[in-house]
Structure formats: structure tokens, C-alpha cells
Amino acid sequence: MKFGILVNEGPYTHQAADTAYQFALAVINKGHEITRVFFYHDGVNNGTRLTTPPQDDRNIVSRWSEFANTHNIDLVICVAAAQRRGICDSGESKRNGKDTDNIAPGFRISGLGQLIEASILSDRLVVFGD
């Protein structure tokens, strides 16, 4: 079965990002497919490579990156939500005259259409938020 996952909250403040990750892992372990993980609202903060948690804490961002790399998962950050919150890739950075980008490996920035498309292409959409 194909699963779409929507993450509405950023890492650390809410449990949503952790629950979404554990759920995503279980989806793969059960032999299902993940169409896409879409990050919206403050969820876009799951994709900043500048996150530096204490050494004894989990690194939520790099955990997503490794997950994407290991299982070839499409991690998409909403561009409109990302622009509001200062998450950008090199293209967005140049376009908006910024001096750096901060997107983490394995993530890409795209439009809200990617969320709608994921919901259409997936058998199930599961939402994690506040």
C-alpha cells in the first residue's frame, strides 16, 4: 500500500515530527511504500541542516536525511511555508538575495501541489501535527 505523510510541526517543540518518523519507519518495515513526506507550516523546520542538538539528543533533521537516503524517500518542504520561515535551497537563496542556504540533504523544496498530488497518488494520507 502507498502512504503519504504530512508533517505540520517543527522538530523538538512538538512530538509530531518524532511520531511521524516512527510511523514512517514502521510503514517501510511493514513492506509498504511511502509516496512522499510533505512538510508544511512549522514542519518545514524539519529540513534545516543548521540544527545542532546536544550530543545526547536525537538529531531529528539528520534522521530524516538518513531515512530518505536509505529508503529512497521523497522529502518535500513547502516553498511558501519555507520562505516565511527562512528555509531555502541554493536556488531559492540566490533568487531571494540571501547569503546562504540551509536545506538538509535528502530534502527538496517544492509547491503545495506536491501535497495534493501525494494525497491522490497514495492509498492513505496520515497527518501529524500539534
Binding site: F23, A26, R124, L125, F128
Partner: peptide, 20 residues
């Protein structure tokens, strides 16, 4: 239930509604 059961439950139901 565990996370694996969570996945099974979602698969066994027609759709999921999250009360956020």
C-alpha cells in the same frame, strides 16, 4: 498497539482523520 499496528490500522480503515 505499537507503531507497526498503527500502520496496519491505517491500512485497514478507509481514511485517517487527525484531530489536531
Amino acid at each position: 498497539v505499537g507503531y507497526g499496528d498503527f500502520v496496519d490500522l491505517v491500512a485497514q480503515h478507509s481514511a485517517t482523520q487527525a484531530w489536531l
